Computed example of a mutant assay.
Amino acid sequence: MEAASASASAATMVFVYGTLKRGFPNHPRLAAFNCPFAGAASTAAPASLVIGPYSVPFLLPTPTPSSGRLVSGELYSASPSAVADLDLLEGTHLGVYERRRITVVVDGATKEVEAEAYFANASYAEALWLRCGGEAAEIAEYTMEHAGRYVPPSGRSPGVSGLMDAVRGFLATAPPAN
Rank of each mutant, 00 (worst) to 15 (best):
I51N: 05
Y54C: 02
Y54R: 12
Y54L: 03
P57W: 00
P61L: 11
T62I: 13
T62Y: 04
P63Q: 15
P63D: 05
T64Y: 07
T64E: 14
S67M: 01
S67K: 01
G68N: 05
G68W: 01
V71D: 10
V71S: 00
G73P: 08
E74T: 01
E74Y: 00
S77I: 04
S77D: 04
S77T: 11
S77H: 07
A78V: 13
S79L: 03
S79I: 06
S79E: 11
S79H: 08
P80G: 07
P80I: 05
P80Q: 00
A82K: 08
A82H: 05
A84I: 14
L86G: 05
L86C: 10
L89R: 09
L89Y: 11
E90M: 04
E90T: 01
T92W: 12
H93N: 15
H93F: 07
L94T: 12
L94H: 07
G95W: 01
G95P: 02
G95A: 12
V96F: 08
Y97D: 15
R99V: 15
R99H: 10
R100D: 07
I102H: 02
T103H: 08
T103V: 11
T103L: 05
V105K: 14
V106F: 02
V106E: 05
D107H: 11
G108M: 09
G108N: 11
A109Q: 10
T110V: 12
E112M: 10
V113F: 14
A115V: 03
A117E: 01
Y118K: 03
Y118P: 00
A120K: 02
A120T: 02
N121L: 04
A122M: 12
A125F: 01
E126R: 08
E126Y: 04
A127T: 12
A127R: 07
L128V: 03
L128S: 00
L128K: 05
W129P: 05
R131N: 03
R131G: 03
E135Y: 04
E135L: 06
E138H: 09
I139K: 08
A140Y: 06
Y142L: 02
T143I: 15
E145K: 15
A147N: 10
G148S: 15
R149L: 14
R149G: 13
R149A: 14
